[in-house]
């Protein structure tokens, strides 16, 4: 799982990779506009700046989940004129401003498709395969 940041026009701004080990996590925007990610697995809260820079990690008691994380759930969808929702026609996550609705632009294709676990493994396997093929063909000559 990853977190991506979009502006009010649906434009991709940044991506946040909290922890490659996965597990359940929750996100909250803190009052200074930074992003906080609470990991249930590690009982930690990681704080990121809006450009994706990691700022700090703090540990929390597992019986004492931060209260503000409970408040910011799927119901927090609106700020000013911008409303974020699933478009019923395209079933894509979209931003609505008045009567216009626009899907969020695809962000970070490289991060999503190449730099994930299987992408790295696949690229490595492809490289080894090419080396084997070229070695075997040279032996035949």
């Amino acid at each position: 799982d990853r977190v991506q940041l979009y502006d009010c026009n649906g434009k991709f701004k940044a991506a946040f990779q909290p922890d490659s080990a996965g597990g359940v996590f929750k996100i909250a925007a803190s009052p200074d506009q930074s992003l906080e990610i609470y990991s249930v697995r590690t009982n930690t809260v990681d704080t990121f700046a809006l450009d994706g820079t990691f700022l700090r990690r703090r540990s929390v008691d597992d019986r004492d989940m931060p209260f503000d994380f409970l408040k910011s759930g799927p119901s927090v969808k609106k700020a000013g004129l911008c409303e974020f929702e699933i478009d019923p026609i395209s079933s894509q996550f979209s931003v609505r401003k008045g009567t216009s609705i626009k899907p969020l632009e695809p962000g970070d294709w490289i991060l999503e498709n190449l730099l994930n676990y299987w992408g790295i493994g696949g690229t490595g396997a492809l490289g080894i395969g090419l080396m084997l093929v070229s070695t075997l063909r040279r032996d035949k000559l």
Binding site: D1, R2, V3, Q4, L5, Y6, D7, C8, K13, F16, F25, K26, I27, A28, A29, Q33, L35, L50, S72, G73, P74, V76, K77, K78, A79, G80, L81, C82, F84, F93, V95, L104
Partner: peptide
Amino acid sequence: QVVVTESGDVFVKI
């Protein structure tokens, strides 16, 4: 999960 900031940016967990 979706979190909208006061400035109108949105964090989307995917």
